[in-house]
Amino acid sequence: IVDRLIPEASVVTEVAETEPVAAALNDTSIAVLPFADLSPDKDQQYFTDGLSEELLNLLVRVDGLRVASRTSSFAYRDSTLGVPDISKALNVGHVLEGSVRKDRDRIRITAQLIEAGTDSHLWSENFDRELVDIFAIQDEIANAIVRALAGELNVGGDKAVSVEAATDNLDAYEMYLAGRELYLSRIDLGESIRLLRAATELDPNFARAWEGLAAAEVIGDAWLAKDDIDHLALAEEAANRALVLNPDLSMPMAVLGLLAESIDKDIVASMELYEEAIKRDPKNTTAWLWKGILFDFAGFMDEAIEAFQQCLAIDPGYLNCKQIMAYLCVILLVELVGYAGFELLPPV
């Protein structure tokens, strides 16, 4: 299986892809920047990134609020640009930034909501808590932000954001976050798989850990091809276990779709599984990408381009999708002008 999720680290640059600038000062849109790790040993970046992403995913649920994708927002990690410039590039009216200091069983989270046009703080708060229930802390922060947004922008109404505890085991959750970050960056996929599997062993009912493990195992077939492990079988096992625990998950369906395409060579079944994954989560960019690649493989180029366009509409910073889209455009150009004409085109 060709790895179809390019490492996230490859798109973390000083300046991310600039989107069309159309954000008004009170635009109902927001970007969640990666929180800074202020822990004593500076070794909790995976935890702070996980918290930032969890908050982003919670804000996505707020009616009337547009949230910039993780890929686009996280490209500004350690950027020297100010909030107005970042917000202009991301085409958002507001930015959420903050920091996390984790020390043993205590955690201090600082979060602030900034209006991009004026670079002024709409809301800021510190949260000093015992690290007992991280999901309760996420719930508290997210709802404080939603209340601030509701007051300033009239979005979300009186509807509270509800955070469901993914696991009661904090060690399992931390292993999941660490494993997921390694999976996204591809720094050490073997270690990612080890951590995610360890999370499932600590809590066998941790559906999101099984989901993450399925995604890591399915690309491990290509990335770890020399380790003599049947990663595809392990991916299928993990995906099915995740769906038993939470039948509504999207990513395991996409993994099963990739397996149906790669192992069974069943294009119809694969497409049905991708469609189901997208139905469960219309913003699953991986499912859109894999669906587009399958369309291209089957010879439906127009449908492939449409899927890639949808992927990029959700996440403009998805580099792998942009690269494949560019490749297809070159193919279309060659077909349009013919190979002879293409060779005569002036260099650019």
Rank of each mutant, 00 (worst) to 15 (best):
N126D: 15
L294I: 05
R280N: 12
A23C: 09
L202R: 10
R4G: 05
I6C: 04
D63M: 01
G338I: 01
I263H: 02
R197E: 15
Y318Q: 14
N240G: 03
S124M: 12
Y339K: 05
F127G: 02
D168W: 07
Q323Y: 03
D105M: 05
W223F: 05
A216E: 10
G93W: 00
E125W: 14
S262Q: 08
G299D: 07
T18P: 08
I145K: 03
D27V: 06
Q323H: 07
S73T: 15
T28H: 14
I324M: 00
V15E: 03
D302S: 10
A111K: 07
T71M: 11
G190H: 11
W123S: 05
I114S: 13
G117F: 10
I137A: 04
A209T: 10
L196K: 13
Q323P: 03
I187M: 08
A16F: 11
P40V: 10
V60W: 13
L289Y: 13
L202Y: 02
V268Y: 06
S250F: 06
R241A: 07
A215F: 10
M325D: 01
S79N: 02
S29F: 01
L131E: 11
I263V: 15
R186H: 15
L177W: 00
L333F: 00
V163R: 12
W288V: 05
I145C: 11
D221N: 01
N169P: 11
K159S: 05
D188E: 04
T18E: 11
A68R: 13
D302M: 13
S39E: 01
D188I: 12
M251G: 01
V92S: 08
E152G: 04
P316Q: 13
L344E: 07
A238I: 06
T200M: 05
E19R: 15
L202S: 03
Y46F: 15
R194Q: 10
V95P: 12
I278W: 00
L195H: 02
A225D: 03
M271S: 04
F295D: 01
D248W: 01
E125I: 09
A239M: 05
W290E: 10
R180I: 04
M251N: 09
L195A: 03
A116I: 10
E17T: 12
A326G: 02
V21W: 03
D103T: 07
A144N: 04
G179S: 09
N240C: 06
A16K: 09
D41H: 06
